[in-house]
Amino acid sequence: MKVSSRSADLLGRLGLMLIVYLVFALHLPSYYSPAGVAALLDSAVLSGLVALGVALTMIAGEMDLSVGSLAALAGILAVKLFPIGVFPSIIVVVLVCAAIGALQGWLIHRIGINSMIFTVGTLIAFRGIALLVSGEKTQLVPLEDIAATDILIGKFGIFSVLSLALFAAAALIFAFTRWTLWGREIFAIGGGRSESRAAGVPIRRPIMIAFALSAALAGLAGALLSLKAGSASPLSYDSLLLEAVAACLIGGISLKGGKGSIVGVLIGLFCIRFLVTGIAALGAPFWAQSLATGLLLIIVIVAEAIFAAAAGRFRLAMRRPAPIIKVPA
């Protein structure tokens, strides 16, 4: 019965996404042409990959704010490593980022510090390191070698290599969180830290895994996008966090941890992409995009909080045992 109510929740979100889609599809032919859909999918890759990682840390009851800076750093590293080849470079960068994330998770667990506080520090520091590593200059793939990166813009119907990477990552994360012990542990510690500990869940492992995956995905996003563009700027991706977080929240990842699904993240992601892309494509000024994104997010989280509070009261009322009027012996 609860399974169906969970899917009802997802259906509601899907409905919201479709409404946003339809509203813009009425005005924009590119919303239903194959090339347009492909472009929409491509536009979701960057924030989508990052949102998957942010979702994991949020599910674990933590929060990784450093993803934007890390993606920028990853982009710089990927372009610097370009001479070893496109895919080796991506793999090395993702591994390095995963290691950084694991270390971050380990420290957060070891010190026992609030991860939002800790990652504010790393958010500043990673950006600084990106500037340092790049010598404060945009890093370029040599123009004569740029053809090597064409492999990243290959197309298969409405899918490109990049959007396939997004969906592959989403599928893997989905499988990981649903069907593996380690993935379920992330849900467990987010839903009840002390309960999980008492039940024997090793808290450190899921925290490290969540942060390692979050960093790896941010690294993958930064590396892919930078190599595709053939250049990386140390200042890029600073508004990434907002969109990733918005995708998670609209997709139903709970701010309190333990709840949410990867399918929801994808729904939230496209909801926000349809909105942002649509408003920009209509030629509306920036403030319209900004206001629409912010208001949508505020409405969603406030409504969700109110709804959750009401549901909690309802459950409490239901749980109250029926009074048995009987004078005890």
């Binding site: 069907w179 012990l181 009840g192 309960e195 024997g200 869940v201 333990g258």
Partner: peptide, 29 residues
């Protein structure tokens, strides 16, 4: 425990096997 160690956001089955590493790395609902 006297204080419950049930994680509300997990399913009943998952709570039964919570913290049990012998159940294998891969598990389907």
């Amino acid at each position: 425990a006297q204080e419950l160690s049930i994680v509300e956001s997990l399913s009943v089955a998952e709570n039964v096997f919570l913290g049990d590493t012998d159940a294998g790395l891969f598990r389907s609902p």
